[in-house]
Amino acid sequence: TELRLDINGREIKVDGADKETLKELLKLAEKNNDEKAIRIIRHLLER
């Protein structure tokens, strides 16, 4: 399955993203107070 998050109005594919990319996405999600995106990205970073 493909995991996509809508961050800042942009749909971004997050599964398969490297750790650096995920960290950047996490910063974006935190800036937007997007709890769902934050939770998902943190979960991916823990893998």
Rank of each mutant, 00 (worst) to 15 (best):
K23Q: 08
R42H: 08
K31E: 13
N33S: 09
L44Q: 09
L26M: 09
N33T: 07
L26W: 02
K36I: 09
D34Y: 05
E46K: 04
R4F: 15
D34R: 02
K13N: 11
I40Q: 06
I7L: 08
G16L: 14
I40G: 04
H43I: 12
L3K: 14
V14C: 02
L45K: 01
E35R: 05
N8Q: 05
R42E: 10
N32I: 12
K13T: 13
L28S: 06
L3I: 15
R39A: 13
R47F: 08
L45D: 02
L44H: 14
L3D: 15
T21R: 12
L45R: 01
G9H: 01
L3Q: 15
R4V: 15
L26D: 00
I12K: 01
L5C: 14
R47K: 12
R10P: 03
T1E: 15
E35K: 07
L25R: 00
T1M: 10
D15T: 05
D34C: 06
K13Y: 14
E35S: 08
L3W: 00
E35I: 10
L3S: 15
L25M: 05
K27W: 08
I38F: 02
A29P: 00
L45M: 07
E2I: 03
R39L: 11
R4E: 15
L25I: 09
L22G: 00
L5I: 14
L22R: 00
A17N: 14
R39H: 12
K27Y: 08
H43W: 07
L44M: 08
T1R: 05
E24C: 09
E2A: 02
A37P: 02
E11P: 05
K31D: 14
N33I: 07
I7Y: 03
E20A: 09
T21H: 07
L5T: 13
L25A: 03
R47H: 12
L44G: 04
E35A: 09
K27P: 07
K19F: 12
L26E: 04
L22T: 00
G16C: 09
K23A: 11
R4I: 15
E30P: 00
E46H: 06
E2S: 05
G9N: 03
L22K: 00
E46S: 08
R47D: 13
A17R: 12
A37W: 02
I38S: 11
L28P: 00
T1C: 15
R4W: 15
N8F: 04
N33P: 05
A17I: 07
H43C: 09
G9Y: 01
D18N: 07
A17D: 14
G16D: 09
D6F: 11
I7E: 06
K19T: 11
R42P: 00
R47C: 09
L44Y: 14
I41H: 00
K23E: 08
K31H: 09
A37R: 01
L44A: 12
I40V: 11
A29R: 00
R10E: 15
A17H: 08
D18R: 03
L26N: 01
K13C: 08
R39W: 05
A17F: 08
L26S: 02
A37K: 01
K19H: 11
L25F: 07
A17G: 14
E35L: 08
D6E: 15
E30V: 08
N32H: 14
E35H: 10
I38L: 08
E11A: 05
E46G: 07
E2V: 01
N33Q: 08
T1V: 06
E11M: 09
R4S: 15
H43A: 10
R4L: 15
A37N: 05
R39C: 10
A29Y: 03
L45H: 02
K31G: 11
K19D: 08
K27G: 10
T21S: 10
G16F: 13
I38H: 04
I41S: 00
L26P: 00
K19M: 10
N33Y: 09
I41K: 00
E2G: 05
R47P: 14
R10W: 07
T21V: 11
E20W: 03
D34T: 03
N8W: 02
L22Y: 02
G9A: 01
N8G: 13
K27D: 11
E11R: 04
A37H: 03
R39G: 13
E46V: 06
D18G: 04
T1L: 14
R4G: 15
G9K: 00
N32Y: 15
N32E: 14
K36T: 11
I7F: 10
N8D: 12
G16Q: 13
I38D: 02
I40R: 03
D18A: 05
K23N: 10
H43D: 12
E20V: 10
L22F: 03
T1A: 09
L45A: 03
D18H: 04
K36W: 05
G9Q: 01
K27S: 10
T21D: 03
D18Y: 03
V14T: 03
A29S: 07
I12L: 04
L22E: 00
V14A: 04
V14S: 02
D18L: 05
I7V: 03
G16Y: 10
L3V: 15
E20M: 05
E11T: 13
K23I: 07
G16R: 14
E24I: 11
I40S: 04
D6V: 15
N8R: 01
D15G: 05
I7A: 01
D34H: 05
H43M: 13
L25K: 00
D15Y: 02
G16P: 15
E2Y: 03
L44V: 12
R10N: 13
L28M: 11
R47Q: 12
K23R: 12
G9L: 02
R10T: 14
K13I: 14
D15S: 08
K23Y: 09
I41C: 02
H43Y: 04
V14K: 00
K36G: 08
D6K: 13
L45C: 03
L25E: 02
E11Q: 08
L5V: 15
D6S: 14
L26V: 04
L25C: 05
I7N: 01
K36N: 14
E30K: 06
N32G: 15
L28E: 12
I40E: 04
G16H: 10
D6P: 02
R42L: 12
A29H: 01
R39N: 13
L22C: 02
I38W: 02
K27Q: 09
E46I: 05
G16M: 14
K27I: 10
K23M: 12
I12A: 02
H43G: 12
K27M: 13
H43E: 12
K13E: 08
V14D: 02
E11C: 14
E20F: 04
I7P: 00
D6T: 15
K31V: 13
D15M: 05
D34V: 05
A29E: 00
R10Y: 12
E11V: 11
T1Y: 08
K36Q: 11
L26F: 05
E24L: 06
